[in-house]
Design a protein around this nucleic acid. Structure first.
Lengths: 227, 227
DNA sequence: TAAATATTCGAACGAACGTTCGAACGATTT
DNA sequence: AAATCGTTCGAACGTTCGTTCGAATATTTA
C-alpha cells in the first residue's frame, strides 16, 4: 500500500490525497535535496550557464548518479519551477479562502507573493528569470498553464475590487503592472537595506490600490506630453 | 584628421562631439550591422544559449571574421547593452530639457522608456534580461554605472514631484516599482493585442501618479491583513 | 604599380558540454 | 545463500563551445 515513487525522474511523490506531509520515500527526499541545491546553482549561474557537473558537485552526487533522479537537465528546471509555482498558488488559495473584503484580498495577493518571494528568493528568481529556458513543449505548456492560472486569479481579484468600488481601469494593464512591480523585486531587493515583506507589501499595496482607485478630485489626464 | 576607429573591438566610433550622425567608418557600420543581428540572436536564444556560430551565421560573416570586430562574445554583449542604455538616457535627457512641470517630467520618463522599449523591443529585452550575464569586472562596472545614473534621474524626478505636491512616500520603493512596471513589459506585451506606447504610457502614468499621490479622502492604511 | 594595411575565412585547438553504459555496491527479499 | 532491486559511479561517447592562427583576398596608401 505504500506508494513508492518509481525512480528515474518523476516529480516529488504525487500523494494523491494530501493526508500527511513528511512520509516521503528516500528517493523523494534525495530528489528534494537535489532540487534545493540546483536552485542555488541555477540562481548563481543561470540555467544555460549551469552545467550538470556544477549541479552534481553542489549536490555531492556523481555526475552519472544525477540521472537516477531525473531524465535531463531541462526536466530538473521544470520540476523546480513547477514545485515553486504550485506552492505559491496553493498558499495564495489558502489565504484567500478566509478573506472577503476585495481590498484585503488584493493586499493578501501582494503579501503572499512578496512574502514567498523574499523567503525563497533564489527559487522565485529562477522561476521568474528562467521563464523562457524550457524548450520541451510539454514542460512549456504546463508552466504556462500555471502562469495563466495565477494571472486569472489576480485578474478576478481586480475585477471584484473594480465592481465593488465602481472604478474604471484597464484590468489587464493593471494586473501586469502589478506583476511587474512585485516580480522586479528580485533584481534590486537587498535583505539588509530594504524593507521586509510586511512593509514592502504595505507600500506597494498602498501605491497600487491608490493607483487603480483613480482620480481623486479632478480627473487627471488633461495634461499630456507635448511631443 | 579623420578619426578612424582602430579595428579589433572598439565600440562604435566615439565621435567626441555630437556633430554629425552618418559619417562612420566602414568598420563602424559593419560593427553596427553585427550588433543589430546579434540583438536578434541574443533575444531569441539568450546570451549563454547563443553561440558565436549562431551570431556569425546571422551576420553573414565567417566565425573567425567576427573577431576582427570585437575581442570576445562577452564584449559583444557589453557593446550592445552600452549602446542601448546610452541611447535611452540620451533621449530622456533631451526630452526633459524642454519640460518644467514635475508631473509631466515623470510622464515623459515613462513615455520615453516605454516608447523606446516597444520600438526596440529586442535590444531592450536583452538589456533587461541579460543583466547578470556579464562577468568581466570592467564591463559590469560600466553598465552598473549607467543603471545607477538612470536610477538617479528617476529618483530626482520623483523627489521633485514629491516636493512640489508636498507628498509623502518612499522614493526608492516608488522608483523601483515603476522600473518593475515598465521593464516587465517585455515579458507580456503583444504588439497585436496590447496598447501602443502612447496609451500604455498614459495608463501606467495615471496609475503610478495616482499611486504615489497618496490617500484621496480618508487615509488608506487602516486595513491590514489579519495574518 | 608596388607596398602597406584592412578585412575575410578555412581549419584547427583544447576545453567543456549533456548524456549513456556497464559494472559495482548496499540493502532487502526469497 | 542466492537472487532481486534501488542506488552509485568512473569512464567514455559524440557534440558543441569560444577562441586562435596563418594564409588569402580586398582596399587604401605611397
Amino acid at each position: 500500500m505504500a506508494t513508492y515513487s518509481i525512480p528515474s525522474g518523476d516529480s516529488i511523490s504525487q500523494h494523491h490525497d494530501a493526508e500527511i506531509a513528511p512520509p516521503e520515500t528516500r528517493f523523494d527526499r534525495r530528489l528534494a535535496q537535489i532540487l534545493k541545491h540546483a536552485t542555488e546553482v541555477f540562481y548563481q549561474k543561470g540555467y544555460d550557464g549551469a552545467s550538470m557537473r556544477d549541479l552534481s558537485r553542489a549536490s555531492g552526487i556523481s555526475l552519472a548518479g544525477m540521472y537516477h533522479y531525473f531524465h535531463s537537465k531541462e526536466r530538473l528546471l521544470y520540476l523546480l519551477q513547477k514545485d515553486t509555482f504550485t506552492t505559491v498558488i496553493e498558499r495564495l488559495q489558502r489565504r484567500l479562502k478566509t478573506i472577503k473584503d476585495p481590498e484585503l484580498r488584493i493586499r493578501a495577493f501582494i503579501f503572499n507573493h512578496l512574502g514567498y518571494f523574499l523567503a525563497n528568493r533564489k527559487a522565485m528568481t529562477v522561476l521568474s528569470h528562467e521563464d523562457e529556458a524550457l524548450n520541451d513543449d510539454e514542460f512549456v505548456a504546463e508552466i504556462a498553464a500555471l502562469k495563466r492560472e495565477y494571472y486569472k486569479i489576480c485578474l478576478a481579484l481586480l475585477d471584484d475590487y473594480k465592481r465593488a468600488k465602481r472604478l474604471q481601469f484597464n484590468s489587464r494593464t493593471a494586473v501586469l503592472s502589478l506583476f511587474g512591480m512585485v516580480n522586479w523585486v528580485y533584481t534590486w531587493h537587498s535583505t539588509r537595506h530594504d524593507p521586509g515583506a510586511v512593509r514592502l507589501s504595505r507600500e506597494m499595496g498602498d501605491m497600487f490600490l491608490n493607483g487603480i482607485s483613480g482620480q481623486c478630485r479632478q480627473p487627471r489626464r488633461q495634461k499630456s506630453i507635448s511631443n
